[in-house]
Design a protein around this nucleic acid. Structure first.
Lengths: 233, 233
DNA sequence: GAGTGGTCTAGACCACTCA
DNA sequence: GAGTGGTCTAGACCACTCC
């Protein structure tokens, strides 16, 4: 295999990827060191290093000092999903985005919400419910609790003008989050809002965010039947 | 802010991240160029470049040539889901793993499968169905199509001895994949196997893999009600 | 101890994009 | 055209880990 005269780290990454794909280097095998590859590809070791680091990040190879670089036995082991704002999600589908603020009230949290957020029964939360629309059709039902202790400014936020998701992004950065999916049956209320039958199978996405161990928000998003969440690796 | 005498790209990344988190640089603002930052941090431009590229990849900043680097208005968050082998998934829950090979036959693909894999109607595929068990209770139903043109060795594979997922990992690396989730209603067959009611709401995970534009496998995995797929960021 | 990847430097040129 | 990030180089030293 003759390398192209002009090598970039992308070319090298592609070539190594090809060799792994075509089983020139099989899973578990040790591949040549950076210096050897740099010589073969006629480039600097840093360039090979960059290519290999990329491949390691995507899970195709595993690297350890002294031990060298091996083709991963269990290739890709993680999927990355981008979490867009609902607006972006809808507009990416080429539809006009709109939302309706269904309710907004300060309230004590139900037990379930308390437990998930790790708060006491006397914590004051803001409860917001929204219906997101794509091309004027129901797209997503959102039920959100915001911890007013962590984000006091939310008390005065105008959620008619800006939806809570976008407002929070601009006003309350978070340090870590928990994100999950499950399948559920639509409640009577969800069914009516999303214009689907009651007890239909719906995809639910739950998201919790914290800023330095202080819970910020818990949101439950309900998608109508047929919705897919997809990612490519 | 005095930089540490010993700067690494991690320190620089952390410091820039901190400034964005503390709104020293607000969303949408232009941040100093690489040369300026290199001067401030007392390091080479390449080091600053690496830190900024990392931040761009994680969505915290947006970079354009000539225009410079800006704090992202809507930081794109990514959720990373670990995709373990079913065996690992079950054993991680502390349950004994076992599976039953329900069927295995060479067949022409149904239209839907043809379309998803981008194959013609005369492609020869291997159709495999499995039930995975955790502590002898149904855990997951798997319906898999394997492209024999891409993986001829699958014809002779012993899927009683090793499940197709693990066999493929060892014998057919893939270059890219598509993962997706959706909610569906259980079919009569799925219901019986998973020991749940018919038309119950189930979480379905679909996975397609390719090796250099050649489809390898399409698999549909059906989880019983209540199953959650969760990740922390 | 020795071998391998991890990171950094100083400088260079290129590619894109804005004005 | 000019400014900014994107990439590459050649060399260096460090950090980890296997033997």
């Amino acid at each position: 295999m003759k390398p192209t005269s002009r090598s970039s780290y992308r070319d090298i990454r592609a070539e190594i990827s090809r060799r792994i794909g075509e089983r020139v280097w099989v899973p578990g095998a040790l591949i040549p060191g950076e210096e050897v590859l740099a010589l073969e590809f006629g480039c600097a070791r840093a360039t090979v290093n960059r290519a290999l680091q990329d491949l390691a990040r995507s899970g195709l190879v595993e690297r350890r000092r002294k031990a060298g670089t091996r083709v991963a036995l269990h290739p890709v082991r993680e999927a990355r999903f981008v979490i867009p704002l609902v607006r972006q999600e809808v507009e990416a589908r080429g539809a006009a985005y709109r939302y309706r603020l269904l309710s907004r009230e300060t309230a004590l949290p139900p037990e379930l919400v308390q437990a998930r957020l790790g708060l006491g029964p006397d914590a004051e939360l803001l409860h917001v419910r929204l219906l997101h629309l794509a091309a004027n059709a129901p797209y997503l039902y959102e039920d959100r609790w915001i911890n007013l202790d962590a984000v006091p400014a939310a008390r005065e936020a105008d959620f008619e003008a800006e939806n809570p998701n976008e407002w929070l992004v601009g006003h309350a950065p978070f340090s870590h989050a928990e994100y999950g999916f499950l399948a559920a049956r639509s409640s009577a209320e969800e069914a009516e809002l999303l214009q689907i039958p009651v007890a239909e199978s719906v995809l639910v996405s739950e998201r919790l965010t914290w800023l330095l161990d202080k819970p910020i928000t818990l949101v439950r998003m309900v998608y109508p039947p047929g919705h897919r969440i997809v990612t490519r690796l």
